[in-house]
Each structure stands twice: as C-alpha cells, then as structure tokens.
Amino acid sequence: CVPEIDFSGIVCDLRGTKVKDFNTGDRVFGIGPIGFRNVGHGVLREYILAKHDHMTKVPDNISLKDAACFPATGYTAYCFLVEKAKLKKGDRVFINGGSGAVGVMAIQLARTIVGSTGLVVATCSPAKTDIIRNLGADEEHYSSRPFDVILDTVGNDHALYSNSPAYLTPAGLFCTIGMVEIGSTVWSATKRLLQLLSAMIVPVYLGGVPRRHIFEPLNIVHSRFVAMAQLVEEGAFKAVIDSTYKFTDALDAYDRVMSRKVTGKVVIEVNDLE
C-alpha cells in the first residue's frame, strides 16, 4: 500500500481526460485518495492520477515544498474555523494541540480572522510555547471569559468536551478533529468513535452536554479547497515545516513522525521540481 494524501507537483499529462481547468506544466497541490488503505495507492510515489476537483494551482508566491504542507491540514482548519464555526472578528478561540500539523494552521488562520480584538489560546508542550506564540497565539493557559469556538486537534480526552460548559459559550461550537493516536488499539479507537458520535446525537434531556459538537471525516469540496488556496496566497497562514527528507529516506521521516516531537509538517522531497 502506498501511503499519504498530501501532495504538490506538476501536471504532466491530460490525455484522455475532460479536464479543462489545468494545463500541462501547471504547479498544483491537492489531496489524493483519502481511503488509500482500501484502494492501495496514496501519493508517496513519483506519479499519481489526481482527481481534478481534489486539487488546485499553487499560488505563485508559494514554493512546491511549502504547498505540500497545506492540502489536508490547511483545508481542515479552513473548513472547521471558517465554514463550520463561522469564526469572525473579535471571537475567542481555544485550540487544543497548537503545535501539531492542524494546530499550527488553525492558530494562524484564527489569528487572521479574529484580529487584534479577538483571542487565540492554544495548548502545547513547554518547549514549543515560543513557536506557537510566533504563529499568533496569545496565551497557553486560559483563565478568563469563555470561548466562542474550541478546536480539539488532539481528540484523546473526552473530558475536554464533557466539561466544556464551564469554558464554552452556550452558542459556541466544539469541533473535534483528532481521534486516533499513534499506538491506539482497535478497542480504544472504537470507544473514542462512540464517544464522538454520542456527543453529536445524545440530547441534553438524556444527559448530553449542552454544547454543540461536530466531528466529521475529511470531505473535499472543490470550492472550499480553492478558497483555502486563496487564503494561502494572501498569507493568512504559512507552512510550518518540522523537517524535510529525501524520498529514499522516507522511513526516517516516519520515525520522526512517530517520535511525537514534530512541530508542523514532516515533508518528503520526491522530486524537487522547482
């Protein structure tokens, strides 16, 4: 099975297709088959067949290396903060897991949207506080007014949601992205999935938490992906690269991911096509 879904590259053949919005030689970035474990082919290879509505052109001011960091994580941050939570200027946002791949995107995007009158609070390990503060986070520890939006990019502790009435406004939205940690068992992953489903469907009069909760798998909508790319071009968020590996050193890249010390993205250079 060829893994991974986030890619950048160059369009090299349009023969046999009805695609009109790309030309040979275009720099593109996008998301490959999300269920690659089922179909057997992800994007960590030299050539792929990509769905035209799962990708778009790379903005001229972004390198192909940086572009590879955005597809799934930038799109996820965009969908939850902009499309679902409808974040606006002055809002207060809490991001659990601020130094992860989605977290670094979410902090930057949230900072751009809420502006100087809003608040972006994030958690991270002590060694990474300077990094996420430079991305736009205001505080690492919260102790004042409730938040309008909570984005949980870690997702391993249901108590963060079940206790949320203490720190999330009644009209606020709790978004869960992370669900399965490295090393999870089938049982722990199933239990977590059931918790997330119950959080969305159990009404308050049956003991549900009186705060709105959403959790949904990655679902690519081309117009949203293009909107995310527009924000990348405008500088709303930038790539945060933890480390870069050659294609032949891919296993070392996975060792780095498994170390749990990653800040942002681990990138593999398959062919430097710049």
């Binding site: 991974e4 590259g9 369009v11 792929i48 990509a50």
Partner: peptide, 27 residues
Amino acid sequence: VEVPIPTTCADDEVLVQISHVSLNSAI
C-alpha cells in the same frame, strides 16, 4: 517495490508528477 507510471486517465483525472509529500500521522 517498483510502482508503474499510470498510463490511462479517467475523465476527471490528470497525471501529476509529484514534487513533495507531507506526512499525516493521524491518517
């Protein structure tokens, strides 16, 4: 393992030569 270059495209697909890939630990 040698992975062959795709030679045919569906109507909604394009052939892309990969430059960079970023890893997703949670997927």
